[in-house]
């Protein structure tokens, strides 16, 4: 066997490291930004690194059965696999390291891959037998049905516009036409953005983890290594979602700086909205997504079909 497989494995590792570092770094920055809005200093931006290392270094763990391993394992699998299939940079030179499996999957595969983690997490939470976990899962899955509708409408609109379902294809389309999808079909972008608010689970859409009602929600019984792995995968998943959104709506990024700028700006949308919003009840949240965001999404699809 030649060297290419080693290079691609190195590429995988580089991608994972990048995603982890950026994801955790963003997590810390979010805490910092939130703190500034709340009139305080806030933790240092590298605080989340300490948290994760601390959790990995916990010496004991509680386990309610082997399914509890499954939850975090599924979560990390979903986030890392999704990461493998997402084009991180669209330039030629840098692409080599971050190419991974970009051309072997497409948007619809990613939609399902991202659910993989939630379902696994839900199963792990179910194994613990904590009623709060079950309620959290029930709320989370219900809410997912809510935001998937505008999200799919937005994706359908842009996929039909670019006549491709692959993410690299979408980036190529934007590069070829020298525009961003958010300007090409703004309605789809708005619908996607609103759906993204739900995907990040910041307020007002944080029902699955609502501390005032459910303690920690699905993760109630997860501590130590489990929580550490979940936080790792959460950091990577946040990065994946952001990069995906940047790729399909904002023309991708040609270098790392561009990528960081775009993803950070995008990340601030749910964070800032969350800081000033109380939490919806579950059914209110579902109805919210099936209201305006869905209507905008439908208009976005019709816009693509009839106007373009």
């Amino acid at each position: 066997m030649d060297n290419s497989i080693w290079i691609s494995i190195l590429g995988f590792l580089a991608t994972i490291t990048l995603a982890f570092v950026v994801g955790v770094f963003y997590g810390g920055l979010v805490r910092k930004v939130t703190a500034r809005i709340q009139n305080r200093v806030g933790p240092p931006f590298y605080q989340n690194f300490f948290d994760i290392v601390k959790l990995y270094s916990k010496t004991t763990a509680i386990n309610h059965g082997w399914m509890q391993h499954l939850g975090p394992a599924f979560a990390i699998t979903a986030s890392v696999t999704s990461l493998m299939f997402i084009p991180i940079l669209n330039g030629q030179g840098d692409m080599m390291w971050f190419e991974n499996l970009n051309f072997k999957g497409d948007l619809i595969f990613l939609l399902y891959m991202m659910v993989f983690g939630s379902l696994g997490m839900a199963l792990g939470a179910g194994q613990t037998g904590n009623p709060y976990s079950a309620i959290g899962v029930s709320r989370g899955l219900s809410q997912m049905v809510g935001y998937e509708i505008p999200w799919v409408l937005a994706l359908v609109a842009i996929m039909m516009q670019a006549e491709t379902t692959s993410i690299t294809g979408l980036i190529d389309y934007q590069n070829a036409n020298d525009t961003w999808m958010m300007f090409e079909s703004p309605l789809a972008f708005i619908a996607g953005l609103l759906a993204m608010l739900g995907m990040f689970h910041y307020a007002p859409f944080d029902v699955p983890f609502a501390p005032a009602e459910l303690a920690s929600g699905p993760a109630s019984e997860f501590g130590g290594k489990y929580l550490a792995l979940m936080m790792t995968s959460g950091a990577i998943m946040a990065f994946v979602k952001l990069v995906l959104f940047v790729d399909i709506f904002m023309g991708g990024a040609s270098n790392l700086v561009m990528l960081l700028v775009k993803t950070f700006l995008l990340y601030m949308v749910p964070v800032l909205y969350g800081v000033v919003s109380p939490r919806y009840r579950t059914e209110q949240s579902i109805r919210y997504f099936w209201g305006w965001p869905t209507a905008i999404g439908v208009l976005g699809v019709l816009y693509v079909v009839f106007i373009r």
């Binding site: 009139n39 005032a212 800081v275």
Partner: peptide, 11 residues
């Protein structure tokens, strides 16, 4: 805080 608006308690 019980409604999930954590900025208000901080202020």
């Amino acid at each position: 805080g019980s409604a999930g608006l954590y900025t208000m308690p901080q202020w």
